[in-house]
Each structure stands twice: as structure tokens, then as C-alpha cells.
């Protein structure tokens, strides 16, 4: 099943680094160039789903200003799912560009 855009953004934000809740919100906002700002409730619902599907995992816990801060990381399954989604989106983008070029040439 295709991943939703917020899910793709969260997985992409976790590529190569671990992130805690706020860092994920900031990463998603940056990746989407400000188009997507996840609310905290939405983010945690998404983290539940991605965790249950084995696409992300809890990496570690730290104490920050008296509160527990949990860091998440991308799993191998998550990386594979993101790779597949990236290829699907790239294929779609190529197809759209090709058709637009053809239409302009007519």
C-alpha cells in the first residue's frame, strides 16, 4: 500500500539520523518547505502506525528539562518501504513530465 505523504516525510526525516518528537515536526516542515506542519497528536498517531508496521523503532530515551524524550530511528524495513515509495513517486513524476512534454510538442 502506498505511504501517505506525512508518513513519507517522517521516514525521510529519519534517514541517517535519529530524531525525537519535535525534531521530527521540524524535519517534516523543512522537507515539505513549510507545506506540512504536523500537530503533536497527528505525529504520535503516525508514529504508532509506523512503529506497529515495523518501519520505525524507538532508538533511545533521554531526560531533557525533567521530561523523557524518546528518539526514533528508521528500520531496515522502513528504509526499504521508503525506497520503494521514492521509486514509485519518481516513476510518476517522470510519466507526468513526459506527457506534459508530449502535449507541448503537439
Amino acid at each position: 500500500m502506498a505511504l501517505t505523504e506525512p508518513a513519507v516525510l517522517v521516514l525521510t526525516a529519519l534517514v541517517g539520523e535519529t530524531r525525537h518528537g519535535y525534531a521530527l515536526i521540524a524535519g517534516v516542515e523543512e522537507l515539505s518547505e513549510g507545506r506540512t506542519r504536523l500537530s503533536v497528536g497527528t505525529l504520535y498517531g503516525l508514529l504508532d502506525r509506523l512503529s506497529s508496521e515495523g518501519l520505525i523503532a524507538l532508538d533511545r530515551e533521554e531526560r531533557h528539562q525533567g521530561r523523557t524524550r524518546r528518539y526514533y530511528r528508521l528500520t531496515d524495513d522502513g528504509a526499504a518501504a521508503l525506497e520503494a515509495e521514492a521509486q514509485r513517486l519518481a516513476h510518476l513524476a517522470r510519466a507526468a513530465s513526459a506527457r506534459l512534454r508530449t502535449a507541448r510538442a503537439v
Binding site: G21, Y22, V40, G41, L43, Y44, R69, R70
Partner: peptide, 16 residues
Amino acid sequence: QWGDDMVGALLDAEQS
């Protein structure tokens, strides 16, 4: 389980 984490994320997000 997740309350502290969510509060921390909200405070960081709003302050930033």
C-alpha cells in the same frame, strides 16, 4: 507512556 514526550514536543514546537 507518551504524555511527557508529547508535552516536550509541543513546548519545543511552540517555543521554536
